[in-house]
Amino acid sequence: MVISMRMIIKRTYSDDDMNLLFKMIRKKAGRYEKIKHLLHIKKCSDPNLAERYLILTCIMNNGQIDEEVIIEDRKVFNALTGKRMEIIELVNEKGPISVKELAKFAGRDYKNVYDDIMALEKFLIIRAVKVGKERVALGKVRECTLKF
């Protein structure tokens, strides 16, 4: 059976999200010039380098990041429970936000919130990055459309 359902999620990144990405990339890969130099000599031997370069180039030029996620799988609805929708709302309202802080705001157990974040990330509904030892959710879901 051909799947005709399509869920489209539109996410935007606030200044706080951009600052977090900037700091995270600087910490992991170093200064912009260093990344550019490494890209030039290493070419594509590190798959993350080019992505970090594009993100930093955009941020350093005061640009904006727009994201669209396309999901064509009915199983996505299994991932969207009430508690997980609350997590999406909390990330929208308070993000960027760590799993620890999310658990505190939601009044839930850390492990359960962490598992929910991972489940949502597997379906690309949430965007989370590792900052130090913490996992931080960022970006704001602005629109979620269902098309048939």
Binding site: E51, L54, I55, T57, C58, N61, N62, G63, Q64, I65, D66, E67, E68, V69, I70, I71, E72, D73, K75, V76, K122, F123, L124
Partner: peptide
């Protein structure tokens, strides 16, 4: 203005295709 357009297409749980396009003007 510079815009980074990211498109992520879900393939299966834990599999995706990610497009990153950097537009300048």
């Amino acid at each position: 203005m510079m815009i980074l357009k990211i498109k992520r297409v879900f393939i299966s749980r834990g599999e995706m295709i990610e497009s990153m396009e950097l537009y300048d003007q």
